[in-house]
Computed example of a mutant assay.
Amino acid sequence: MSLAQDLGYGADDRLLLINADDYGVCHSVNTAVQQLLTEGVISSATIMMPCGWAREAAHWSAAHPQFDVGVHLTLTSEWEPYSWGPVTQNGDVSSLTTDEGYFHPDVRSFEEHAESSQVKQELIHQIEKAIKLGVSPSHADNHMGSLYGLQTGKHFMPEVLDICAAYGLPFRLPRYVQVESGGIAPPELEAQARAIAALADSKGVVILDYLLGLSFQLQKGETFASFKSDMQQLLTTLKPGVTEVIIHPSHLTDELNAFHREPVKRGMELQIFRDADVRKTIEEQGIKLIRWSDLQRLQRSRASSN
Rank of each mutant, 00 (worst) to 15 (best):
M1K: 10
S2G: 10
L7I: 15
G8P: 12
L15N: 07
L15W: 14
L17C: 06
L17V: 14
L17D: 02
N19E: 06
Y23I: 01
H27D: 08
V41A: 06
S43D: 12
S44L: 02
G52L: 11
A54H: 08
A58H: 04
A58E: 05
H64Q: 12
Q66D: 13
V71W: 06
E78M: 08
N90S: 12
D92M: 02
D92R: 03
S95Y: 00
Y102P: 01
P105M: 05
D106C: 12
E115M: 04
V119S: 03
V119K: 01
K120I: 01
Q121M: 14
L123I: 10
L123M: 15
I124N: 10
H125M: 10
K129G: 01
A130H: 12
N142C: 14
M144G: 01
G145V: 04
S146I: 09
L150H: 00
H155T: 00
H155M: 03
A165V: 02
A166H: 13
V179W: 11
E180F: 09
G182A: 04
A185D: 08
L189M: 15
S202M: 07
G204Q: 01
V205C: 07
I207Y: 02
L208P: 02
Y210G: 05
Y210I: 03
L211P: 01
G213E: 09
G213K: 09
Q217P: 00
L238R: 00
K239I: 01
P240Y: 09
G241H: 06
E244V: 01
E244R: 02
I246Y: 04
P249Q: 06
H251A: 12
L256K: 03
H260F: 08
H260D: 15
R274C: 08
R274Q: 14
D275L: 04
R279D: 02
W292C: 06
D294R: 07
S304E: 14
